[in-house]
């Protein structure tokens, strides 16, 4: 095996560049090195001006998402050897504005997320004296998959609908809405439905399914969205057919 691999990194320096360009670096090709290790090597040894985000290095924090060879990936969980002999292209996550080099602006998601109220909503809070809300293993299993999201934004980068229509609420936010809807302790489904039934909500999705394919945590946002559509459709039919008292 060659002992080096070429990494082509998209660079954008807003103070100098009118648009992003490419810069090439040759880095050691080690079997235990990820794309993030390569970038850190560049930053520490070759070019300290390179900007990128990371934190945990173990697929937990969700901050190191990048497009590697055109696919949204966690760069800390993507091994260089999978792209040998190279070169391997590293770009900022697609569909988000680029702030600098590999750093993208995810404010749009941070603004959308609270709109779907991803927290437990109760009609009436129990007092602490009443004790905790108990949950059976089955009740936990009902939503657990959707609770694994690490907000890495790979699904937004993979979603062509979001790319074409940035108003679309998007995969992770809807999966998180579903996570709370399915939680036996929650009573806020109605409030979330009001938000997600809008045109930019679940019906924006055309079921491309890429979000599910790229999700590193197997959240299956596409599944969550289709289940939500089914729920929304049932509600609409009920609202149409049943007098108010029976809904």
């Amino acid at each position: 095996m060659a002992d080096e691999i070429r990494v082509e990194v998209a660079r954008y320096r807003p103070d100098k560049d009118r648009e992003p360009g490419w810069q090439e670096y040759d880095v050691p090709l080690r079997t235990d090195w990820t794309v993030l290790d390569a970038l850190n090597h560049v930053k520490n040894e070759v070019d300290s001006t390179l900007a990128f985000r990371w934190s945990c290095r173990m697929g937990i924090c969700g901050s190191c998402g990048m497009n590697v060879q055109g696919e949204p990936r966690l760069s800390c969980a993507t091994f260089l050897t999978d792209y040998a002999p190279g070169p391997v292209r590293v770009e900022p996550l697609a569909n988000f504005p680029v702030v600098r080099d590999l750093v993208v602006d995810i404010d749009d998601f941070l603004e959308k997320l609270p709109r779907v109220k991803p927290w437990i909503i109760r009609d009436e809070e129990k007092s602490v004296d009443d004790g905790e809300y108990l949950q059976s293993p089955e009740e936990l299993e009902a939503y657990q998959q959707f609770s694994m999201c690490i907000n890495c934004m790979l699904c937004y980068a993979a979603c062509p609908v979001y790319g074409l229509d940035p108003d679309f609420v998007g995969p992770a936010a809807i999966a998180l809405a579903e996570r709370y809807d399915l939680d036996s302790r929650d009573q806020g489904a109605r409030q979330r439905l009001d938000v997600l039934i809008e045109a930019e909500g679940v019906y924006g999705c055309t079921f491309v399914g890429e979000c599910t394919r790229v999700c590193p945590k197997h959240v299956d946002p596409a599944g969550a969205i289709q289940r939500y559509k089914l729920k929304a459709a049932q509600e609409s039919v009920k609202a149409f057919l049943l007098p108010r008292a029976f809904r």
Partner: peptide, 15 residues
């Protein structure tokens, strides 16, 4: 171009 004007220098890549 597709770049935002004003203080926001972030680059929006066209689809």
């Amino acid at each position: 171009m597709s770049r935002a004007t004003g203080d926001d220098l972030s680059y929006r890549r066209p689809v």
